[in-house]
Simulated assay, not measured.
Amino acid sequence: MTLQESFLKAVEESKVLKERPGKDELSELYGLYKQSTVGDVDHERPGILNFVGKLKWDAWIPKKGMTKEEAMAAYVAEVEKLKEKYGI
Rank of each mutant, 00 (worst) to 15 (best):
18 K>I: 09
71 A>M: 06
40 D>R: 10
32 L>Q: 07
25 E>R: 08
51 F>N: 05
67 T>Y: 05
86 Y>A: 04
82 L>R: 11
81 K>T: 11
8 L>A: 09
34 K>S: 02
55 L>R: 10
65 G>A: 06
10 A>H: 03
82 L>C: 08
45 R>E: 05
7 F>Y: 15
85 K>S: 01
77 A>D: 15
26 L>Q: 15
8 L>S: 09
78 E>V: 09
71 A>Y: 09
64 K>T: 10
4 Q>N: 09
36 S>Y: 01
32 L>A: 07
44 E>K: 14
42 D>R: 06
74 A>W: 05
46 P>T: 08
75 Y>V: 04
44 E>F: 01
56 K>L: 01
60 W>A: 00
81 K>L: 10
55 L>D: 08
53 G>H: 02
26 L>W: 12
77 A>T: 13
58 D>F: 03
64 K>E: 03
65 G>H: 01
35 Q>R: 13
86 Y>V: 11
37 T>A: 08
12 E>Q: 12
3 L>Q: 13
67 T>L: 05
32 L>F: 05
68 K>Y: 00
58 D>V: 02
77 A>M: 07
71 A>G: 03
4 Q>D: 13
34 K>Y: 03
16 V>L: 09
29 L>K: 10
6 S>N: 10
38 V>S: 05
13 E>M: 09
74 A>Y: 06
77 A>V: 05
15 K>W: 00
16 V>T: 15
76 V>L: 06
5 E>T: 13
40 D>P: 03
34 K>D: 00
79 V>N: 06
69 E>K: 14
15 K>R: 14
21 P>G: 04
17 L>T: 12
78 E>G: 00
35 Q>C: 02
14 S>P: 01
77 A>L: 09
45 R>A: 12
43 H>I: 06
